[in-house]
């Protein structure tokens, strides 16, 4: 009997060793490098830090929106309500004001022309460029990606995006940076087409928090994680209730099972 379990263990150990060995296979220079950060939204009970969300939105609006669209979001999402609660904690009037501060293309009017009008909460976020070609033309052929889902679309998620934003450094000696590219510690291959978007004090925060690069990066990544997962807080809240209910129900079912089976065992 011992030999059989030993045999099983040996086979598992061999398989595990092979798997481990293969994971370590080095393609390290092509992989992004970044470290893990602390995020308020991590974990089963994670929530969004509301002030950070609002600061992050300010960073997006003042810095990133010049090149990056956020086309899957509508202005009304900032105020929450509807299918997803929470938003980033802005009131209906604040949301209306933000929407009204941008011009939105609408039409055609009765003359057949498209026209500009102030935005409404029901409008989608305005894109900086009308189409991909215009975006590339303004950015040396590179396309600034839409940011609605960027935190989910990259392995490493929030940590990776934070790493990119804080990873702009002077290139080390001997490293040649190509024309129109910038050295970035995190980006795979270390050359990225985006110029460093953040610098200390680039944004003046409404809540007077000091706007260092790590602070702005942290806030905008929090905002972008919300943008990709606006339902996160609902999901966590309902999830905790569902699991607790299921644990109780499963416990009851186990008791019933034992009771019903008591005459067979």
């Amino acid at each position: 009997m011992m030999r059989k379990t030993m045999f099983k263990k040996a086979v598992f150990a061999v398989a595990a060793a092979i798997s481990l060995g293969l994971t370590v296979s080095a393609r390290a220079q092509d992989e992004p490098h970044f470290s893990k950060q602390d995020w308020s939204f991590y974990g089963v009970f994670g929530t969004f830090d509301r002030p950070s969300l609002q600061r992050g939105f300010q960073v997006y609006k003042d810095v990133c929106s010049a090149c990056h669209s956020l086309r899957l979001l509508s202005y009304r999402d900032l105020g929450g309500g509807g299918a997803i609660d929470g938003g980033i904690g802005l009131s209906t009037d604040e949301v209306k004001a933000i929407a009204a501060s941008v011009q939105v293309t609408d039409g055609p009017n009765d003359q057949g022309d498209m026209f500009q009008r102030p935005g409404r909460p029901s409008d989608r976020f305005v894109s900086p460029f009308p189409n991909e070609q215009a975006a590339r033309a303004s950015n040396n052929g590179a396309l600034p990606p839409d940011l609605s889902l960027i935190v989910e679309a990259r392995p490493g998620g929030p940590d990776y995006v934070y790493g990119i934003l804080t990873g702009f450094k002077d290139a080390p000696a001997g490293f040649t940076v190509n024309q129109g590219m910038y050295y970035n510690e995190t980006f795979a291959g270390h050359q990225i087409a985006m110029p460093p978007p953040l610098s200390d004090g680039a944004v003046t925060y409404a809540d007077k928090t000091q706007a260092t690069v790590p602070q702005m990066a942290h806030d905008v990544v929090t905002f972008l994680t919300w943008a990709a997962n606006p339902e996160l807080e609902s999901r966590h809240r309902i999830g905790v209730k569902v699991i607790i209910f299921l644990v109780i129900l499963t416990g009851l079912l186990y008791a019933v099972k034992r009771k019903v089976w008591s005459d067979v065992h």
Partner: peptide
């Protein structure tokens, strides 16, 4: 009754994934 109990255990794992790590099996791309 045994199947219902088994379902309860299965649902705890399954809904645990759904509510807390819903993109675990997914691909960023």
């Amino acid at each position: 009754v045994k199947d219902l109990f088994g379902l309860g255990v299965f649902l705890i794992v399954y809904l645990g994934v759904v509510f807390f790590v819903p993109n675990f099996f997914g691909e960023p791309d």
